[in-house]
Write a protein that binds this DNA or RNA. Structure first.
Length: 353
DNA sequence: AAACGCCGCAACCGCCGAGGT
DNA sequence: AACCTCGGCGGTTGCGGCGTT
């Protein structure tokens, strides 16, 4: 059993299986001695738990399993054994390998940090750009130049935001800066990415958004629109106070999503940025909690500003903001499917909360 | 067709912490 | 408190498949 890429049980495996079938797994340290195996106990245990166990499920991960892994990983982190406990027939090692070779790479390709499951703003350090450009009047950073030079890497909506902020700064920089600092709009914009925290404390975030007053400067309409959008989003996320994770949709076909119903929503950045003219139609009964609550804002929204998996953050493929509905393999990778998500009933949420 | 490089996967190793004695 | 056993995790290894040159 020492050689790799063993597709079938070796003679040593048969001995191990026979022994465990007779005596049970029991004491792994004494097992190889009792079974006459030239292995350490740990090696036997790993071989058994990762390969020889009769309930091991072989073959490619199903899409449901993949979704479950992503969802559980977003909550549990690298606790592979805990994730494996929720995936019957799959081992922690198998899940870990699959994560590292497939899911992790795909999340990275889509601009999602596989560790935090948050959008990777390091690809576009918007916070530092905006802070530098807007909160430090002495800075002579030409944002337009910067935006132009990085245009190929950026999401169009982010470009629009940056350009708007840049022009507003030029038109009325002092007043806008004052408004910005007073209202902490920037912080609000940046904090919105912390969706788990937002979801768990929607009221605080709503208060923060509602603190944004009506503006009378040239930046006013922009800020008002932003605040309105944020409020729309927050309403969706906070209208169900009993749902810790859920992010309610404003659409009529909203399906309540609470842990009590074994449904767990992905963080908000998994939401579809429905900038397309043909938004995903969610059938009644389908889980729609991942959809953006700001469907009315197709040209500008917080959701569309903040990177999502549906926005290709891949510098090599930044041509489209929309869902890539291409090949079969890519079809599996299409995060639109993540809009529909269900945790198996066996999942004990309380265990890891 | 052969050589080469890349990638996926199964398996292993070292370290560490938890729990029991 | 010290020791032992077990289990978990991150990282690595090595083989085989596949595509490219």
């Amino acid at each position: 059993m020492g050689s790799r890429k063993v597709l079938g049980p070796s003679e040593e495996d048969h001995e191990l299986i026979s022994y465990i079938q007779l005596h049970g797994p029991g004491n792994w340290r004494s097992l190889p001695k009792n079974a006459g195996l030239q292995r350490c106990g740990k090696s036997c245990r790993l071989r058994w738990t990762n390969y020889l166990r009769p309930d091991i499920k072989r073959g490619r991960f199903s899409f449901d399993e993949e979704e479950t892994i992503i969802q559980l990983h977003s909550v549990l982190g690298n606790k592979w054994s805990a994730i494996a406990a929720r995936l019957p027939g799959r081992t922690d090692n198998e899940i870990k390998n699959y994560w590292n070779t497939h899911i992790r790479k795909r999340l990275l390709r889509n601009g999602i940090d596989p560790v935090t499951h948050a959008p990777r703003l390091d690809l576009l350090d918007l916070s530092s750009i905006l802070t530098s450009a807007l909160c430090n009047p002495s800075t002579l950073l030409n944002l337009s130049t910067l935006v132009g030079s990085t245009q190929a890497l950026l999401n169009p909506d982010i470009l629009r935001l940056a350009t708007t902020l840049s022009s507003l700064k030029q038109e009325n920089s002092d007043m806008f800066l004052q408004q910005l600092q007073e209202n902490q709009l920037l912080n609000s914009l940046l904090q919105i990415q912390d969706v788990p925290a937002l979801s768990s404390q929607p009221s605080q975030f709503q208060n923060l958004v509602q603190q944004v007053p009506v503006c009378t400067t040239s930046a006013g309409p922009f800020i008002n629109q932003t605040a309105q959008i944020m409020q729309e989003n927050v309403k969706g996320c906070s209208s169900n106070p009993t749902s810790t994770f859920s992010c309610q949709n404003s659409q009529e076909n909203f399906v309540p999503s609470s842990l009590n119903e074994n449904l767990v929503s992905l963080p908000n950045f998994y939401c579809n940025s429905t900038t397309t003219t043909d938004p995903k139609v969610v059938e009644p009964g389908e889980y729609s909690g991942f959809q953006s609550a700001n469907n009315g804002y197709q040209n500008f929204s917080i959701d569309s500003v903040m990177p999502t998996p549906l926005m290709s953050q891949d510098p090599l493929n930044s041509s489209s903001t929309y869902v890539n509905s291409s090949s079969t393999e890519d079809e599996r990778e299409c995060y639109s499917s993540l809009l529909k998500f269900e945790i198996p009933e066996s999942l004990d949420i309380d265990d890891f909360l």
